[in-house]
């Protein structure tokens, strides 16, 4: 499942010409990765890793990947904001979202 999503996202990045679609591709890949990280830490019938006041939890899922995912979501947010603001500016200057037409740099 994750790898299917991952490949869809990669296809989207590599094959599409529209800037916005490329950004969507990156988002898909990121989410595939987050899902993958969560699944690494999952155990069958596991519970949320919260230490509660009055009960002992024996079968916890691994909390570390969840911490990693929450961090990588934030990073993803930052990257997406940067990319989208770049895309808006590019549209302003070039008047198009098509990367085959944005070719002022060569060589």
């Amino acid at each position: 499942m994750c790898f299917v999503l991952f490949s869809i996202g990669l296809y989207c990045i590599l094959r599409k010409r529209n800037i916005i679609k490329i950004i969507i591709g990156i988002v898909i890949v990121e989410y595939a990765l987050n899902l993958f990280l969560i699944l690494i830490g999952y155990r069958i019938h596991g519970r949320a890793p919260i230490v509660a006041q009055d009960q002992e939890i024996l079968n916890m899922v691994d909390p570390l990947p969840q911490a990693m995912v929450s961090t990588s979501i934030v990073i993803g947010l930052a990257i997406i904001v940067v990319l989208i603001s770049l895309a808006i500016r590019i549209y302003e200057k070039y008047g198009t979202f098509d990367i085959t037409k944005i070719r002022r740099l060569k060589g």
């Binding site: 947010l77 904001v81 989208i84 603001s85 808006i88 500016r89 549209y91 302003e92």
Partner: peptide, 16 residues
């Protein structure tokens, strides 16, 4: 601030 910057960018563009 992020949300706001993006909104302002769009407004600027529409202004032109």
């Amino acid at each position: 601030l992020m949300f706001f910057a993006l909104v302002l960018l769009v407004e600027e563009k529409e202004g032109k």
